[in-house]
Design a protein around this nucleic acid. Structure first.
Lengths: 200, 200
DNA sequence: CACGTAGCCATATGACTGTATGGTTATCGG
DNA sequence: CCGATAACCATACAGTCATATGGCTACGTG
């Protein structure tokens, strides 16, 4: 059912995700959807949580892979953060779902709380990455980790909007996707400028 | 009527802006609203345009003031860009309206076009600011103006989200607003590092 | 066997929605 | 003065929505 909600919102917007439409899309009756979800808000909240959890766990997997391969933190971040960008049709759908719920979070405290938690998680991971970087020598010791985390998180979000809006627009002689990655890389390179002294 | 739409969306979300509610809020009858707007979409589009025009003209005014006072470009940008942030109740309302329409732009091409134009305008102004900075010596001549504009625009947008979500959260020993300004300043100072050779 | 509970469904209900209709009043150019 | 056009209104209409209702299986437990 959550997948049905995802598909409907990604394809036709939040308003398309009515109880009847969700039931039809999932191949069940309206009654069954009601059986599992006390109200429509419950259903939407569940679906939203699923999307954010999905994104965060994909990022976590990429981080783990990078750590296993003993890559520098800078490289790991540069690999995992664009996972949050709408770079293919699946993630463009995810973006649409996210933005739809983002709007709903303006009036729905429960959804706002999920959005807040998700943002805090990303920021927390970034902040921890910077702190780790200080320990291993990639980052200057006097860097404000929290401030850097806020900046990079904001940058990611803002670039996601641009990427969605005009994926094909050229920026100079690059594609928008290349430009976004270049911007992210230059920012990360600024914070993670040193060499890790643990791995070789 | 556009003001009524603004108030309703800012206070209770896009769904609250029904024809009946708008008419009541504006003190007119439903029929009159219909008299001036062919359809609800027309009404919403008009209201959205008004909000974005408002924001852009406020920014333009601040830019003009800064230019009149012969301030360096860096200072002008640092003064006018936070105008787009939800730093007081009025601009928080504006933010809510913007985000509501942002979500609607996912399904409504006309609204998407307005959003695209607005983003392009901001980017264009930023890009021009960098080019001007090159001429007057504030900016390194080999800076990619377009790339810098994309980065700063994305940063502004992303920070706006954070500012709205948790205006009171402390970042280190600063408020969120101070942190956002510090981040913006450091980014601007990086691009506009030189002295303007025209004034003084 | 009984029986409660979970899974499952079709349909009724009542509240809202945007828009259409058919009007009245006022303004103003010829 | 006359007629057209704009301003303005109440209400009807057709549709959609979330949710409530009542009933149907099937199954595990006492």
């Amino acid at each position: 059912m959550a997948e049905a909600v995802h598909r409907l919102i990604a394809h036709d917007g939040l308003d398309a995700a009515t109880m009847a439409a969700v039931a039809r899309e999932a191949g069940f009756s309206v009654g069954l959807v009601q059986h599992y979800f006390r109200s429509k808000d419950d259903l939407l909240l569940f679906a939203y949580r699923r999307v954010t959890d999905d994104q965060l766990s994909r990022v976590a997997r990429l981080v783990a892979e990078g750590e296993a391969a003993e890559q520098p933190i800078r490289a790991i971040l540069l690999r995992c953060l664009p996972e949050l960008w709408p770079l293919d049709e699946a993630r463009r759908g995810e973006y649409r779902v996210n933005r739809a719920f983002h709007a709903r979070s303006l009036d729905n405290p429960t959804i706002a709380e999920v959005a807040r938690e998700t943002a805090a998680t990303v920021r927390g991971q970034l902040s921890r990455a910077v702190e780790n970087g200080k320990e291993c020598g990639e980052v200057e010791p006097d860097t404000d980790a929290e401030l850097a985390a806020v900046e990079v998180a904001a940058l990611i979000e803002g670039l996601a909007d641009d990427l969605y809006r005009e994926p094909g627009r050229p920026v100079g002689d690059q594609t928008m996707a290349e430009a976004a990655e270049a911007i992210l890389r230059s920012r990360l390179t600024r914070y993670f400028a040193g060499e890790c002294r643990h791995y070789r």
